Simulated assay, not measured.
Amino acid sequence: MLRRLYARVGDRITLVGVGGVENAEDAWQRILAGATLVQGYSAFIYEGPFWGRAMHKGLAARLRTSPYASLADAVGADVRTTA
């Protein structure tokens, strides 16, 4: 759904990736699909307060191995490359 929305609206509105975000890879996939923000409510509740730190470290590691200079550059990258 995020890919379809991002393809139509681009960066004119903020898209939020929600549901099923348990780890950094889940968040990364939503960012590439067009999410500017990612909500990880349930994972935070079940994993505890250190979940945020693990998410941050995982996203930072993923970004270092990617061709993008920042997370902002990665937003919607999957849609832009297939369009």
Rank of each mutant, 00 (worst) to 15 (best):
A24P: 10
A60E: 14
F50P: 00
R3I: 00
L15R: 14
T81D: 01
R4V: 04
V38T: 12
T14W: 06
Y46C: 04
H56I: 14
D26C: 12
I13S: 01
L32Y: 12
T82I: 10
I13C: 10
L63R: 10
T14V: 14
A7C: 00
P49D: 00
R4G: 00
R62Y: 00
T36F: 06
A61I: 00
M1N: 11
L71N: 12
W51R: 11
V21K: 10
T36E: 11
S70Q: 02
R3Y: 00
R30L: 13
P49N: 09
A74I: 11
L63C: 02
A24T: 05
A77L: 02
S66H: 06
A74Q: 09
R12E: 07
P67G: 14
V38C: 15
F50T: 06
G20W: 05
G10E: 01
I13P: 01
I45K: 11
S42M: 07
A83C: 10
A77I: 01
T81L: 07
R30K: 14
T36I: 04
R53F: 11
G40V: 09
R3D: 05
W28E: 08
L15F: 06
I31S: 04
T14K: 05
P49R: 15
D26E: 15
V75I: 13
V75K: 04
E22G: 14
Q29C: 09
Q29G: 03
Y46S: 09
A69T: 04
V9C: 07
L2E: 02
A35R: 07
A54Y: 12
T81V: 13
S70H: 04
R12F: 06
G19V: 04
L37E: 01
Y6H: 12
G34V: 13
I13V: 15
G17T: 09
S70W: 05
A43L: 03
M55E: 03
A54K: 15
P67Q: 12
M1K: 07
T65I: 02
H56A: 15
T36P: 07
T14F: 07
R12Q: 12
L15A: 02
T14A: 15
G10P: 00
R8P: 00
R30M: 14
A27C: 12
G48T: 11
G48S: 13
V9M: 03
N23T: 13
L2G: 02
I45N: 03
L32W: 12
P67M: 01
L71M: 01
Q39E: 09
S70Y: 02
W51I: 09
L5M: 05
R4K: 06
L5D: 08
A7P: 02
T14M: 06
